[in-house]
């Protein structure tokens, strides 16, 4: 019995140990190591210790960009919440069949190539694209709207690409609320607002935060959206990191920004925990 126990324990713990050390820790150490190195004029790496990469992050140019990038990501996250929350509340009132169908349908766009989807948006949003043509032909507007190659395009692209990451956790947390509790509250004379404030909101907050993190983190990193729908006119942190690796040949600086991002994430997760969120909800749909 004892032997079997310990073998069981071994089977259930050994793979994750191996995985974490080889495929997470080793790459991470490599980046951490790079972030303290210097880059030579040929884009190679000089193995001497320096903190200059981290100090470089706090250059006013980059700070400005971090703020701009964060604002775009916050706006995208906020719009995702504004769409997902009412969507989930409405879905709650529907039958189980429809709930089931809708949560599955959300996944369908996910299964196509994101690059191709983004190209679909170009065809829609261009100056003489489908949306502008339709609006002009129906007499609603006279001159085409600028729907892309600006912030609007980036926000549309971000919200579109990341919406499922918000919809799924928010829906699952809203749909999980026990109807009996709400009925009981109503029976005791609670108003609609009170029900929302005291029952629905607290129970769904973790879903919303969970979704927010899953939207926010990619939204500062998804450089292909700013490149394609933003017309490359606005840089986000993702573009900056990509540039360090693939244009400026400054891997140490790129690594330092990546480590900086990881630290920010850890801080966000700490805040989330302090707000009473369960760690395990993150990323789990």
């Amino acid at each position: 019995m004892k032997k079997e126990q310990s073998m069981f324990k071994f089977i259930f713990t050994f793979p994750v140990l191996v995985y974490t050390f080889i495929l997470i820790l080793l790459p991470l150490l490599y980046i951490l190591f790079l972030s303290f190195c210097k880059s030579d004029s040929y884009g190679g790496i000089i193995y001497t210790f320096t903190l200059s990469n981290y100090l470089n992050i706090f250059d006013i140019t980059y700070i400005k960009m971090f703020i701009k990038s964060s604002l775009i990501a916050i706006l995208a996250t906020f719009i995702c919440i504004l769409i997902s929350y009412p969507f989930a509340l409405v879905l709650r009132t529907k039958s189980k069949h429809i709930q089931n169908l809708c949560t599955k349908l959300i996944m369908v766009p996910f299964l196509t190539n994101s690059l191709i989807r983004t190209y679909g948006w170009i065809i829609l949003l261009r100056k003489n694209g489908i949306i502008n043509t339709a609006l002009i032909n129906s007499g609603i507007i006279y001159t085409p709207l600028s729907l892309m190659y600006n912030r609007i395009g980036i926000i549309i692209g971000m919200v579109y690409t990341l919406l499922p990451f918000m919809l799924l956790p928010v829906c699952s947390s809203v749909l999980e609320i026990d109807n009996n509790i709400i009925e009981a509250a109503k029976d005791l004379g609670a108003s609609k607002i009170q029900v929302f404030k005291n029952i629905i909101l607290p129970q769904t907050l973790s879903g919303v935060f969970n979704g927010s993190l899953m939207v926010f983190m990619p939204a500062i990193g998804y450089f292909f959206i700013t490149d394609i729908l933003g017309g490359g006119k606005i840089m986000i942190i993702g573009n900056l990191i990509k540039n360090q690796f693939l244009t400026a040949r400054n891997w140490p600086f790129g690594s330092a920004i990546a480590i900086f991002l990881i630290i920010i994430t850890i801080i966000l997760i700490k805040i989330y925990k302090r707000l009473g969120g369960k760690m395990d909800d993150l990323g789990g749909f």
Binding site: V16, I24, L28, G238, I241, A258, L261, T265, I269, G283
Partner: peptide
């Protein structure tokens, strides 16, 4: 550590 692949930029 297991959260790191979720948050780290893909290129890195």
């Amino acid at each position: 550590l297991i959260y790191i692949p979720i948050v780290i930029p893909e290129i890195v």
